[in-house]
Simulated scan of single mutants.
Amino acid sequence: MSWHFVIPPAFAEEVAALPDRVLGQDYPYWLGGRFNWVAQSYLVLRQYREGLTLGMAPEPDRINFAHCMGWRAMGARRGEFRISVRADYPRLFDVDFEILQNPAVPLGPRQAYLPYWPVPGVIPRDPSRQGLKVLAYAGRIGPLNLADDLKGGPTGLPRGLEFRIIPPHLWHDLSQIDALIAIRTFDGAPHDAKPPSKLFSAWRAGIPLIAGGDSAFSAVGTPGHDYLRVRTREEFTDALQRLHDDPDFYARIADNGHARADEVSHEAFARDWIAVFDDRIAPRFEAWKQDRLKGLYALAARGADRGRDTASGLKSRLRSLSRRPT
């Protein structure tokens, strides 16, 4: 099957270097989803399939795969078949198939769940470490990434517990970390647009994750068994205290998660990706090539995208006006 992976020209330098990169050694995973979704897919899947290509523009008569914001930057398609990763963004209609990153979200006939690739080269917790001494966050700092009252460091930590925000280029090194947090808000919101990536990192590192109410976490994990879910500041404090004070509880949560590490490896995810490409996308691509009405469908899809953008702009304008002093 003819797969072509498309990365925006803004990453031209990295695209040129990518074919020689090695995951877990010199691959710059911290560049963000617009690059990483496509780049890791190319690097991993080329180990299992021949004929994969990489470029900065789509090609005709190929299965073109890109991040949705990459497609938006390129504008309306010109007769090519497009696969889009929605990631954290609004749905893009002017595509032929869409990949979602949260298994809890209901799927349509032209959609599939595929996991966001794990951080490559994760270094597990040093087995000589004892107890909960270092709590960390390994992710971007921005809206709905980390709860506002945790960005400056949690208050009321158990005595002797240190909190760190790990810089992006070190997200893979969890050797000196005893637990991770992934709490976007303390209101129990499901954050359905978000993936379970931090849970994958914790499992592979052999450490507990304390997470918020994200539906993606509970879709792949079991709260209280292989990670901890908290919905309030008080529950967060209680979870930390128990992990700190109860070594058996700490070990049980960490071990249950680590037992699932093989399920969230690049190899396991590659099997999922190939199955979706072969069983769902390839037949649709063959049907698309014979469909004489595909131009009309694309025109209608572009209209839906324009309508979505117009509605979004109006909402932003109304919010801005509502904030003005009277």
Rank of each mutant, 00 (worst) to 15 (best):
R140V: 12
A136S: 12
G307W: 15
L180R: 03
I141E: 09
S215G: 11
H172G: 14
K289W: 02
Y116P: 00
M74T: 05
L92R: 12
F163H: 04
E234P: 00
A259K: 15
S316D: 09
F163V: 01
K315V: 03
E98G: 01
D88S: 07
D279T: 09
G121E: 11
N64Q: 09
V6C: 12
R302E: 14
A39Q: 08
L43R: 08
G212R: 02
D305F: 07
L146P: 00
R324E: 12
I274H: 07
D149I: 02
L318E: 12
I207R: 06
L296K: 11
A282C: 03
Q130I: 14
V85C: 12
G307K: 09
I83P: 13
K133F: 00
D246V: 03
G24N: 08
G257V: 10
R242N: 05
L321W: 15
W71K: 03
S84E: 00
D246E: 13
R62C: 13
A216F: 02
L199P: 08
G70F: 06
R280L: 15
P223W: 08
I63W: 06
P127M: 04
F217K: 01
T326H: 14
W171Y: 14
R324H: 05
L161M: 08
A138M: 05
A138F: 02
R46T: 01
A287K: 07
A251H: 14
R125P: 04
D61W: 01
R308A: 12
G79E: 07
S84H: 04
L296I: 09
T53E: 13
I141C: 04
